[in-house]
Design a protein around this nucleic acid. Structure first.
Length: 446
RNA sequence: GCCCUCAUCGUCUAACGGUUAGGACGGAGCCCUCUCAAGGCUCAAAUAGGGGUUCGAUUCCCCUUGAGGGCGCCA
């Protein structure tokens, strides 16, 4: 495949970090924009800190985000193997080239690279000309014989014909080491593009894996939409240069380019992410919304009667409840609490809501009237229920709101929720009347 | 400490050297309305400071300050 070759080179030493995801994303975007090749390479030279579990987290997270790789583990390619732990022979070959050039020496059992002493200059695609003098020789093979990051990173970029190195700014200062190595090998420099860092939400420093919201896994667990997370991540360090924020991926791919990347670090903002996610959630087909929600109910475990009943409910009923809630909630994770009363009689009554209702006058007479009117009403549609209530309110010279507010409290225990009529329709006549009766019998206890 | 990078509302960002410095999140208020969301309207909110260059600087240059990163036999 012609065109640029970029790579994402994670180290499986922890969970998948949001900053890593953004680096992977920008590499992927550049490959897709240019018709180039996106290579996944696993940098697992530090045996002590690696595990297959972490490896699978990387694969799963990339797939979940939709960042498919053209070459790498599972995908194959002409420049494998793609795990550095399997490339020892290649590193030995390249080491010989350095030895032959007289650029190495041994000290304390480790192999050192002899620097040139000259300042190294790169023409960074986002930062422009950057010059830095590497001042000390550095280790390229440990005393146990294993190669070090700087060495394998450069060797693999050469061997895999990487044309553009797109990575975080935390590598900018290391680049002088890398340029030294490229030159020592007699190889041309790739184009470097150093991305601004993602800073932690509050407090000093860049986002680290211990920070709240730093792991991609967390958003998957919380049933965020991957396309929302990806869209949000695109906007951390890049923009279309106009007012658009929510954009289809195809459009982002079309517009994305290296010169459009910002130079300054970006602070992570979970509120804005949550908003982006909500905007995406709102436009999902009810079936997909319900499917996401269903997984979240499962996650609650069987100990919760509401969750158990939700799972036991007919698919149609569950879908209907979720469809009603979709325009109302900001996140999937709110759903179990938000819809609890649809699935169990064991739901809490908000004391503040009850207080507000009673402060406006004892609602018991109205509730009794509502129950009487609804005892013969047609529960098959919102409209028929609404007509019955309007007739009742007109007959009593009251507003429908005078019935709706206590009526909602009686069957749901809360003052917030979907349309009153939809709630009654879905709960059904029998349960609704029973709940009103129960409320009338013990309004203080409930 | 040395080196590298960066600097527009609280946050993410837009603005050929000439704009009432725009949008979004968040905040406040109003409207809509059966509540809550969503939506609509409105408000508060920024060019870090100081020097230059220029008729004119958010924009170009320098200094200061601030922020971030790197200086591992981690990646």
């Amino acid at each position: 495949m012609p065109g640029p070759r970029v790579r994402f080179a994670p180290s499986p030493t922890g969970f998948f970090h949001i900053g890593s995801a953004r680096t992977a994303l920008f590499n992927w975007l550049y490959a897709r924009h240019t018709g180039g090749t996106f290579v996944l390479r696993i940098e697992d030279t530090d045996q002590a800190r690696n595990s297959d579990e972490f490896l699978n987290v990387i694969y799963d997270s990339l797939r979940w985000l939709g960042l498919d790789w053209d070459e790498g583990p599972h995908a194959g390619g002409d420049f494998g193997p793609y795990r550095q732990s399997e490339r020892a022979g290649i590193y030995r070959e390249y080491l010989e080239r350095l030895k032959a050039a007289g650029r190495t020496y041994e000290k304390d059992g480790a192999l050192f690279f002899r620097i040139s002493g000259e300042p190294q200059v790169i023409d960074d695609a986002v930062r422009g000309r950057v010059e830095r003098l590497e001042e000390k020789d550095f280790v390229i093979f440990r005393s146990d014989g294993s190669p070090v990051f700087h060495f394998v990173n450069v060797v693999d970029d050469i061997a895999m014909r990487i044309t553009h190195v797109i990575r975080g700014e935390d590598h900018l200062s290391n680049t002088s080491k890398h340029v030294e190595l490229f030159k020592a090998f007699g190889e041309p420099l790739p184009t470097f593009a150093h991305l601004p860092l993602i800073l932690k939400q509050s407090g000093p420093g860049k986002m680290s894996k211990r920070d709240q919201g730093a792991l991609v896994e967390e958003y998957r667990r919380r049933a965020y939409l991957p396309e929302a997370l990806v869209n949000f991540l695109c906007l951390l360090g890049w923009s279309p240069k106009d007012d658009r924020e929510k954009m289809p991926m195809a459009e982002i791919i079309r517009l994305f380019d290296l010169p459009g990347i910002n130079q300054s670090n970006a602070r992570f903002d979970d509120k804005k992410l949550a908003h982006m996610n909500m905007v995406y959630l709102l436009e999902q087909a009810p079936e997909r919304f319900a499917a996401l929600a269903r997984g979240f109910f499962t996650g609650l475990g069987p100990a919760d009667p509401a969750a158990a009943d939700a799972l036991a409910a007919s698919p149609d009923y569950f879908l209907a409840v979720m469809a009603l809630s979709q325009p109302k909630v900001k996140a999937i994770e709110e759903l179990p609490a938000y819809t609890r009363y649809f699935f169990t009689e064991d739901y809490p009554v908000d004391p503040k809501a009850r207080e507000t209702i009673f402060a406006k006058g004892d609602p018991r007479t109205r509730l009794a009237e509502l129950a009487a009117a609804f005892s013969t009403a047609d529960f098959s549609s919102d409209a028929t229920l609404e007509q019955v209530l309007r007739d009742l309110a007109a007959a009593k010279a009251l507003k429908i709101a005078d019935y709706i507010h206590p009526g909602r409290l009686a069957v749901s225990g809360t003052s917030v929720g979907p349309s009153f009529f939809s709630i009654y329709r879905l709960i059904g006549r029998d349960k609704a009347l029973r709940r009103i009766e129960r409320f009338l019998g013990a309004p203080d206890r409930l």
